[in-house]
């Protein structure tokens, strides 16, 4: 059984696409689509990698990231941020908050796979 990836994203089509390519690459993909309950979901079983969207219903991805970095269990967990607002200041904000990787939508499948492999391997 491969490493576990938790995808927190609210767009069903994007969930489906990312799940498809990661599963095909041998990852175990869990998904969650609500911001408010995302931390609880993470704490149920800390994954090897978290892919986190910024614009989530209920709670923003930045807030979730801040909580993750504040908690001992998830302090070292690699987090890859996804955002559709590809401005430089969004990237700075994400890195500043402790994101391991930052990716702007739309992305190619190859990019995602490459990043996920690199992060999970580190």
């Amino acid at each position: 059984m491969g490493q576990r990836v938790l995808l927190i994203e609210d767009e069903p089509n994007i969930i489906e696409a990312v799940s498809y390519i990661l599963s095909r690459d041998g990852w175990t993909v869990h998904t969650h689509s609500d911001g408010e309950t995302a931390i609880e979901k993470v704490m149920q079983g800390v994954p090897d990698l978290i892919i986190l969207d910024v614009m989530l219903p209920g709670r923003s991805g930045y807030d979730i990231l801040r909580d993750l970095r504040a908690s001992a269990e998830t302090k070292e967990t690699p987090v890859m941020m996804l955002t559709a607002r590809g401005q430089a200041k969004d990237r700075e904000l994400a890195i500043g908050l402790g994101a391991t990787q930052f990716m702007t939508k739309p992305f190619s499948n190859a990019e995602v796979l490459e990043s996920v492999r690199a992060l999970a391997g580190s």
Binding site: A17, A84, G86, K105, P106, F107
Partner: peptide, 11 residues
């Protein structure tokens, strides 16, 4: 704009 484009590109 980017959200649907992401799905389209990925699929």
């Amino acid at each position: 704009l980017r959200t649907p484009m992401t799905s389209i590109r990925s699929f």
